[in-house]
Design a protein around this nucleic acid. Sequence first.
DNA 1: GCCAACGTTGGC
DNA 2: GCCAACGTTGGC
Length: 137
Amino acid sequence: MNYWLMKSEPSTYSWDHLVKDKKTSWNGVRNFQASANMKAMKVGDRVFFYHSNEGLAIVGIAEVSKTYYPDPTDKTGRFGMVDIKPVMPFKTPVTLADIKQDPKLKDMTLVRSSRLSVQPVTPEQWKYVCGLGGVKG
DNA sequence: GCCAACGTTGGC
DNA sequence: GCCAACGTTGGC
């Protein structure tokens, strides 16, 4: 089982929207590194859902429900996407400020490479952040 | 709304 | 294959 973090602007696609939809296709990624990360995902992998621009916090946990396949919105045919479904919300959102000031999390990709929209999370980071969020990962 | 950081593109 | 220009992301 691998762990990931995906970013979305709430004004574009929020956690609540995902819960309402029951699942979504993660289309629109146009970055090779993010795309490569999605290629590495397997069904059942867990994903932190992060709100960028507004909120600036990890708000819940989702799960990969379909592996990488071509993104129909990409006319060049170079990029693909995965499907995800909601698992559970955090009791307490874990904010970027929380993550930045915590020595245990200062190596998270979220801090180090803030612009990457799909990033890996280590099992240690996963457990710890789940603890902060008030849920069992 | 601004601006820094960074990835991608395209000319050479 | 380098690198300048450009566009986009995302925190503040």
